[in-house]
């Protein structure tokens, strides 16, 4: 009997699957639930950022760029298409200014979205 049951275990598995809810997520028609710690879009706290450039130095993918004239005049930019979403900038930042949110970054057809100005400070 046990052997018989095992022989038809795939059959019982598909019958079980028939009664279960389908596991597929109806994305993009239904919302996508991402866990809290998911490494998504880069966000910055402009008050904390001093434009030191540590994040740019450690970025392995070249996804961040800093144009710096002086301490008070710099522009920090992020290229979402180059970014590897590895979280290194978040680790490198000493002041906790730059971090990942858990928002998924979708592909884009709009060229203006390829550069995101994170912080621009003019003297």
């Amino acid at each position: 009997m046990e052997k018989f049951k095992k022989r038809f275990s795939l059959l019982s598995a598909i019958i079980q699957a028939w009664f279960d809810k389908p596991e597929t997520v109806g994305y993009p028609f239904l919302p996508l639930v991402l866990p809290e710690g998911f490494r998504g879009a880069i966000v910055i706290d402009p008050d904390k950022c001093t434009g030191c450039g540590l994040c740019v130095r450690d970025c392995p993918a070249g996804g961040l760029r800093l144009e710096k004239k002086s301490r008070d005049e710099f522009k920090l930019m992020h290229h979402p298409a180059s970014c590897a979403y590895c979280g290194q900038c978040e680790r490198s930042c000493l002041r906790g200014a730059i971090s990942h949110s858990n928002a998924l970054v979708a592909a884009t057809t709009d060229a203006r979205e390829l550069v995101v100005v994170l912080k621009e400070k003019q003297g």
Partner: peptide, 9 residues
Amino acid sequence: LARFQRRVG
């Protein structure tokens, strides 16, 4: 077949 395989179909 999709439902047997836990898909929506």
